[in-house]
């Protein structure tokens, strides 16, 4: 399978504090990568660097055959923007646009950024909302929805631009426990459609279930990487064992 994302020796410091000490991994088209690990281990920072929300201090990120950053040097702004249009991000806190209806949240970028016609954008949005079980809420405003519904809208919003890789930053962490199921179901459905995804999550059972590969990030380094059966079943690393034991209860 074609390699769609390659991260090499990624380092990130905030001031004097280095939080990522040279992280490398790659992702193939159609694969689902789960990023797990203790809080403060660098999961979210890694995701923010790869999605270009946070500048790296050193290292390389290659997305769909184009260098976003190579050896710490970033591509020109226009190229960065073009590359980042090929990826989508679902936030922990949804970050829907509160002043837009659900439908407009999903159509706005299609119209403004991709220049799609109103009809085309709306049809695509309605397809996606339908898939998320939210076609009846198209005219509602985000504040009228439950957390789970808002997160499904934000997934539809990200999918509307037809990204080649979809990133999730702890997509269920801001939700009540009884609402996490509906989001996990949606992500599982996307995995079945062979959507390429990187999921930062604390839902261990889900990570094991849905992913093709697991990255265990601890103290800013990749402590363990491999197929879920290996990482969860027979972890090599003592830190991984300890972490998973705590989750197993």
């Amino acid at each position: 399978m074609e390699e769609i994302l390659r991260v090499k020796d990624l380092r990130k410091s905030f001031g004097d504090n280095e939080v990522l000490h040279g992280v490398s991994f790659s992702l193939h088209r159609g694969d689902v990568l789960a990023v797990i690990g203790p809080s403060g281990g660098g999961k979210s920072t890694l995701l923010r660097c790869v999605t270009n929300l946070e500048p790296v201090s050193a290292g390389s990120i290659r997305i769909a055959g184009e260098d976003l950053v190579s050896g710490g040097a970033y591509a020109p702004r226009a190229v960065q923007r073009r590359i980042c249009l090929r990826i989508g991000l679902v936030f922990q806190n949804f970050n829907l646009f509160p002043h837009f209806s659900v439908l407009r949240n999903v159509t706005e970028a299609q119209r403004v950024v991709l220049g799609r016609s109103r009809e085309h954008a709306a049809a695509h949005a309605m397809d996606l909302l339908d898939k998320m079980g939210l076609s009846a809420k198209a005219d509602a405003y985000p504040c009228e929805l439950s957390g789970g519904q808002q997160q499904r809208v934000s997934i539809a919003r990200a999918l509307a631009l037809d990204p080649e890789v979809l990133f999730f930053d702890e997509p269920t962490s801001a939700l009540d426990p009884e609402l996490t199921g509906e989001i996990l179901k949606v992500i599982r459905g996307l995995a079945e459609e062979k959507m390429t995804m990187v999921i930062v999550t604390h839902e261990m059972a889900f990570a094991r279930d849905v992913s093709d590969r697991v990255l265990f990030l601890d103290g800013g380094v990749v402590a363990e990487e491999g197929p879920p059966a290996e990482v969860f079943g027979a972890p090599n690393n003592e830190r991984t064992r300890e972490f998973l034991r705590r989750f197993a209860g």
């Binding site: 923007r81 980042c84 249009l85 990826i87 989508g88 970050n95 509160p98 970028a109 950024v113 631009l161």
Partner: peptide, 29 residues
């Protein structure tokens, strides 16, 4: 919230588009 800017950036909005379409209407309110 910074999340509004970040969401707009991830969707490919330019900075002026982000300001006039996403930020300013919320500021007015």
């Amino acid at each position: 919230p910074a999340g509004q800017h970040e969401a707009a950036k991830m969707l490919g909005f330019t900075r002026p588009q982000t300001f006039f379409r996403i930020v300013l209407p919320q500021v007015v309110k």
